[in-house]
């Protein structure tokens, strides 16, 4: 978070566009919208200093609903877009949002390198363990024995991707897990993530009532992490690997130099318009 003079008196609602979300009633993504806008209001960030970048998917519609700068990008490329933006405009608070399909399948490689690069941005993955927008196919976080998709009638059959573990080995410096059933807790995690200097990864467990109605059980399964966040990657790895993926809180946080390219803006918008003339 840099270059932001806070504007006090802004309410979460001031960060919503008023566009009606198309998410299914009961979708966890509503709570992510609520948590993001509460976090922005708490930090009193001026709208023009924040950008929300996303890929494609139900969850990736977030930029349409938040009244900061937004870019609803290409499937799996949110982190690449966000990194480019942050390189050119280090003064912006860059938030990146998307789903588990967007971030861990097609965008999986970008995820690894964004963690490793440690640019100062916050990546929120709304993990519903399914491709919601394309009508319910298995994603990398879907359990191997989930049989409810016609594409994988016997289940995907391969082990689940463990986002927090991958983030840790790839070099992320802030790793947290939240639950949309606890929006105020998620808000706290987002505030900490935004304030953290470096790449912050927040996995938001976000139930999909349409394709994964069994997620109703999550409410009973999630619980706060038992220990304080550690800065020791070995301890973090052990905790993450021995956990069932349902503990929420900051799992790992450390401070290492943020990567930010030196160069400033080398073209003005007029020159860019010439290059991108259609």
């Amino acid at each position: 978070m840099h270059g932001n003079t806070p504007i006090t008196g802004l309410k979460p609602k001031d960060y919503k566009t008023g566009i009606k979300p198309v998410w299914c009633p009961g979708c966890g993504d509503f709570s992510v919208l609520s948590a993001v806008t509460k976090a922005l209001a708490h930090l009193a960030l001026p709208h023009q200093n924040v950008a929300m970048i996303s890929g494609i998917g139900c969850s990736s519609r977030l930029p349409a609903y938040t009244s900061v700068y937004g870019f609803h990008g290409v499937h799996g490329r949110a982190l690449a877009l966000a990194s480019g933006l942050k390189a050119a405009r280090p003064d912006l608070t860059v938030l990146v949002a998307g789903g588990d399909g967007d971030g861990f399948s097609i965008g999986g490689n970008h995820f690894l390198h964004a963690c490793r690069r440690n640019m100062d941005m916050t990546y929120i993955v709304m993990d519903n363990e399914v491709y919601g927008m394309t009508k319910g196919q298995a994603s990398p976080t879907t359990a191997p024995d989930w049989t409810q998709s016609k594409l994988t009638p016997h289940g995907p059959g391969v082990p689940q991707f463990i986002p927090a573990a991958i983030a840790l080995v790839s070099g992320a410096t802030f790793i947290a897990r939240g639950f949309t059933g606890n929006p105020n807790g998620l808000t706290k995690l987002l505030v900490e993530a935004i304030e953290h200097p470096g790449f912050s990864f927040v996995q938001a467990l976000s139930p999909c009532p349409t394709y994964r109605p069994e997620h109703k059980a999550w409410k009973k399964q999630v619980r706060p992490v038992e220990e304080e966040a550690t800065s020791d990657p070995i301890i973090a790895a052990q905790r993450i690997q021995t956990d069932d993926g349902m503990s929420t809180g900051v799992l790992y946080q450390t401070t290492v130099p943020v990567w930010q390219p030196e160069q400033g803006i080398s073209a003005d918008t007029g020159q860019l318009e010439e290059v991108f003339f259609v």
Partner: peptide
């Protein structure tokens, strides 16, 4: 802050 309100409910 939103998370320090004295609710007994998540929100």
């Amino acid at each position: 802050p939103p998370w320090d309100f004295k609710w007994t409910t998540p929100e």
